[in-house]
Design a protein around this nucleic acid. Sequence first.
DNA 1: TTTAATTTGTGAATGAATTCACAAAGCCTC
DNA 2: GAGGCTTTGTGAATTCATTCACAAATTAAA
Lengths: 207, 207
Amino acid sequence: MKRIADSTVRRLSAYLRFLEDFEGRGLATISSDELARRGGTTSAQVRKDLSFFGSFGKRGLGYSVPELAGRLREILGLGRQWKVIIIGAGKIGAALVAYRGFRQRGFRILAAYDSNPDKIGKPLEGLPVRDILQLEKDVQKEPPDIAVVTVPSESAQTVVDRVVRAGIKAILNFAPTQLQVPPDVTVKTVNMAMELEGLSFALTNRD
Amino acid sequence: MKRIADSTVRRLSAYLRFLEDFEGRGLATISSDELARRGGTTSAQVRKDLSFFGSFGKRGLGYSVPELAGRLREILGLGRQWKVIIIGAGKIGAALVAYRGFRQRGFRILAAYDSNPDKIGKPLEGLPVRDILQLEKDVQKEPPDIAVVTVPSESAQTVVDRVVRAGIKAILNFAPTQLQVPPDVTVKTVNMAMELEGLSFALTNRD
DNA sequence: TTTAATTTGTGAATGAATTCACAAAGCCTC
DNA sequence: GAGGCTTTGTGAATTCATTCACAAATTAAA
């Protein structure tokens, strides 16, 4: 399959969100133009994005809301459940465990891990917190698909090396660090410092 | 000034992070090649990125670490202090308040706001939590530069309208929603659902 | 002082993503 | 069922971003 750009996948994700909204309101069809207006893009962009995967619309009419939503879920791999572990039982970890969006979209959090003896054993928002030393054994018993890394920058690379060695192929990283991983492992980084500096730049360099 | 791409600004932010690391280790100069290796990019990219703002290097030698760090701070607008408010005193808000990176980079959090009477008045990680109804008056007294929005999706647009009306020009949004704002307001969105779906897509569509 | 070795800064070339523009296809009304 | 109105799907054109490639500067060594 032709390589799909990251930006395209992000937009598909946004389209799905709007479609779910429309689904909830019982609307039957939607045009690329309407979808574009909601997503801050153009109708041509919407149609091009979808065209990489097939043609799902009806000319003159638009797209069936439930059908397109279903197709997007399929494309994005949301038809199944993904198993997630969280490494780092701090404040960010706690916020993530409490975040409803995870479960809603089929991401099931199995456990949190930490190296701090004060944290191990004390549930985080109801989720068991285990010793990071236990990781490999647990992974063998019930392999997670995704590891969310919420440890401080200094330990991020070490933790990631360990996660990769255990065979996990997808990482969501909250440490403001560039991580080194083998090419078959996918990393997405959420970098708050970078977003803030982006705002700082925008505020500083306005016309 | 020529428009600078978002991707460029994000890389500048990354370069600054590496430079600070080098600064801490007392290194005097660095080449574009070294900077590129750290940032997972190419030396030509590094030089092109910097060239939008001037020429800071010495041929044959590289860049002075402290000088380039200073220039980047200047470019990114980090020479000053930015005032930040947080709207939504939930788990994400709490994680942000506790996050050291904010203060380290000159972002001072003034207060948090919420509409829930159970939360108003009870400090969040030491930060005062005020009634959202008080927002306009507070903004007049001490105008914040940036509003961080951590309320649920349903209320995000309403809250943002209010923030915009109060005159704030930069928003960091944690709600998984596309926000409508006037063109002079900059929004950066951190969308965890989108990142997770990106990972789901990557796991689903591998060779 | 010359020569060899680095490394920047930047036009030119390439590659990637977005937008244009229009034929093809479906609906609706008369 | 003809004509008008919509809206898709998609090559072609365009715009934007990255990479190439090399002259110009600088250092270090001989």
